[in-house]
Design a binder for these strands. Sequence first.
DNA 1: AAGAGGCCCTGATAGC
DNA 2: TGCTATCAGGGCCTCT
Length: 287
Amino acid sequence: MPELPEVEIVKQSLSKKIEQKKIKKVIIKNRNLRFKIPIKFEKLLQNKTIKKVTRFSKYLILNFDDDSFCLIHLGMSGTIHLTKKNVLNKFTNASFYNSPELPKKHNHVEIQFGDINVIYNDPRRFGFFKFIENKQALIKRFSHLGPEPFSKNFNLKYILNYFINKKKDIKSFLLDQKFVSGIGNIYASEILFLCEINPKTYAMKLSIKDCKKIISYSKSVLNKAIAKGGSSIRDFKNTEGQSGNFQKEFKVYQKKNLDCPRSKCTGRINKIFISNRSTFFCNTCQK
DNA sequence: AAGAGGCCCTGATAGC
DNA sequence: TGCTATCAGGGCCTCT
């Protein structure tokens, strides 16, 4: 679910609320996530102070004062909520979904800071928490990931070299975190629409101009989404506050059978499946 | 080694 | 109303 922009929004709100605070207690209500949370997890976190909250790709990173870390991945359905102590049944939501109150089911982890609690909710359990001992272990954990779109390493030389002899479609590469990390299924379709590239095009067939567009639009789409507070596609409740707004700017995602939004184009938006993931594109202007 | 496909899991929605 | 089938923003694993 959450792609880089959404995780960034969560990171920003968490930073404001929990940095420099000490973890008093950790409660695990359900250890079954993508990886089972080990019994020792709570003790490892207890009494540590959050030096900083950072993010890499779609991963949240709690940086502790003793230079250990806690990785948090939201998977497809993970959300993070902040609840104020002593305000029973009244919650402040830290996630981009901005649900007015804490979900009743599937609350897995609760990190207590005294004045505030962090709740992790995840119905599908594809997310995870992982304690990381030190910087070296963190680097190792991320070693298989490609650069973020914002990185100077995500450049023309890197892409052209990567795509040599690659007989796989460009959509799949944008989703492949080994190639570029942080882009997910929504933004992959949006980026390719702006590039005017058909998602089924083999990577090796892309021109230099195409690759330049991919670099440029990957950055701009993600930045714009962050500026809009991310995309809240399942937030049907009309609540005020931190809800994301980028979903209003989708050009093709979930726009099946609608007219192409490009003013000079008379095409329609098609929906196809690539590697079992829904993919939206204009059959006319994305050649 | 690259690429295709399956799988982990629950919930919302569509269609009968 | 109540069943079943399909799909959902991710990533890991196995097989060829």
